[in-house]
């Protein structure tokens, strides 16, 4: 006899309500992004038109040309600065934090847990607390106005990423490292040739987190950089909006192109992002 599966009406209603609520919440979060995206293809009058134009008509691609050719907003230059800044920090973080995590997770030395505890305590310390002495230090070194103060600290690790990577390093079998020691590998070589290949995915996750964090970073560049040609996009967009408050369409086009790389990055690597978030909280 043919079996038919029947879903209880109450269950159907529950599912419908659940999805309706989730869609409504999603719409609230997506609305500003959608508004930014359609505004990038309107002129100022269309942006503030009443009634609201929910889709740009016509699609004004000239905003894009205008953005890329303006003298007072070196978008491409600042885009390149952001790419350089984000990739440098990602490389620095992956290098330094994986070394520290290897030490905390794979090596045994006296005081290891204490030092790791202190490192994790750094997570609780707001950056603003140490800002002034650090700023004075870089000023004394004469490196204000360069990317050194923004990138160099990441070569000395970051508490959150060290903590996150250590969780993964703890999962690497100790025997692998022992075997490499018996094979005559130095600790640095073990880290580089044996352990890092085992934590390749977590390392990529950390790199992605670092890129997203740096791409959106605003306070550091605001404090240390003075030359507009040196600004990353986060700061460049802000200074443009501050100076040209009425040019909403260009601002929105800039905002869209600034956000777009991170959106694409997230869509391409969202599985890794979810994995990273789960592992940093659950392990």
């Amino acid at each position: 006899m043919k079996k038919t599966s029947r879903i209880a009406p109450a269950r159907v209603a529950q599912t419908l309500v659940y999805h309706a609520v989730m869609l409504a919440i999603s719409a609230v979060f997506l609305l500003p992004f959608y508004w930014m995206a359609i505004s990038a293809f309107k002129n100022n009058a269309e942006i503030f038109a009443n009634p609201v134009l929910w889709f740009p008509d016509p699609i004004r691609l000239e905003n894009l040309t205008a953005l890329l050719t303006r003298d007072d907003f070196p978008f491409l230059r600042q885009f390149a600065n952001s790419v350089f800044y984000a990739l440098s920090v990602a490389c620095a973080v992956c290098f330094s934090c994986s070394l520290a995590a290897y030490s905390f997770g794979c090596l045994r030395w006296r005081g290891r847990n204490l030092v790791f505890g202190l490192t994790v305590c750094a997570l609780l310390l707001p950056g603003i607390v140490t800002f002034l002495p650090v700023y004075l230090g870089w000023t004394k070194l004469g490196l204000n106005g360069t990317y050194w103060p923004l990138i160099a600290p990441f070569f000395f690790g970051d508490a959150f990423f060290i903590f996150m990577l250590r969780q993964f390093f703890l999962g690497v079998p100790r025997e692998l490292m022992d075997a490499a020691r018996l094979d005559g590998a130095s600790e640095f070589r073990i880290w580089w040739q044996i352990v890092l290949p085992q934590v390749r995915t977590p390392l990529i996750i950390v790199g992605l987190f670092a890129i997203v964090y740096t791409w959106n970073e605003f306070f550091g560049p605001l404090i240390y950089l003075q030359d507009r040609d040196e600004f990353p996009l986060s700061l460049g967009l802000f200074t443009f909006q501050a100076a040209r408050a009425r040019e909403w369409s260009i601002s929105m086009t800039g905002a869209l192109l600034t956000a777009l790389p991170m959106v694409v990055l997230f869509l391409v690597t969202q599985r890794l992002f979810r994995q990273g978030l789960a592992s940093s909280t659950l392990k």
């Binding site: 025997e175 692998l176 022992d178 075997a179």
Partner: peptide, 9 residues
């Protein structure tokens, strides 16, 4: 070693 400890990569 008990778990072989071969380099997986």
């Amino acid at each position: 070693f008990q778990n072989y400890a071969l380099y997986p990569h």
